[in-house]
């Protein structure tokens, strides 16, 4: 019985804090995405031939986000029924966007206005009991181009 009570408390805490953090994180992501709209992200491997940047440099952004108890429980139930693991979708979406934003922040600090050859890497850095993913790491990296008319 005590097990069930602890479980329900953890579930409620997980839901409450998870929801709160996710909402405020998304608010921050949306605000910063607007702020960094000036920096273009290009997936091609090389800059266009007519662009002659003053300087190019590797930029990277890295983030680790943990999943809350509630989401983990939802995902474990999904293992029985199948279907979209909705509780992890927002986790990965947040991590991806946050990593890109951190990379963009680094690019802005250099004075860059474009980042080429964007790559994203994802890793579950902590596998909990019985391989339940506990936290996810997303690394975003690319080549920042600093134009001639801009100073770092």
């Amino acid at each position: 019985m005590i097990d069930i009570i602890i479980f329900i408390i953890l579930l409620v805490l997980g839901y409450g804090f998870g929801r709160l953090l996710e909402t405020s994180h998304y608010r921050s992501i949306l605000r910063r995405e607007q702020a960094f709209r000036g920096i273009l992200l290009i997936a091609t491997r090389t800059p266009p031939p007519d662009l002659i940047p003053r300087k190019i440099q590797l930029v990277a952004g890295n983030v680790v986000i943990s999943v809350d108890y509630f989401k983990r429980f939802l995902a474990s139930l999904r293992n029985i029924f199948g279907g979209r693991v909705q509780s992890y979708e927002s986790l990965l979406d947040r991590a991806r966007r946050e990593a890109i934003l951190r990379m963009k922040a680094e690019a802005r600090a250099l004075g860059a206005d474009m980042v080429f050859n964007i790559k994203l890497e994802t890793a579950s850095i902590y596998k909990g009991h019985k391989n339940t993913i506990g936290a996810v790491e997303v690394l975003a990296y690319g080549t920042a181009c600093v134009p001639h008319n801009r100073e770092a």
Binding site: M1, D3, I4, Y69, F73, L77, N79, I80, H129, K130
Partner: peptide
């Protein structure tokens, strides 16, 4: 066992 989580273990176990 299939669901692979100790969380569900404890609940379904009881």
């Amino acid at each position: 066992g299939v669901s692979g989580s100790n969380l569900s273990d404890s609940v379904f176990g009881s």
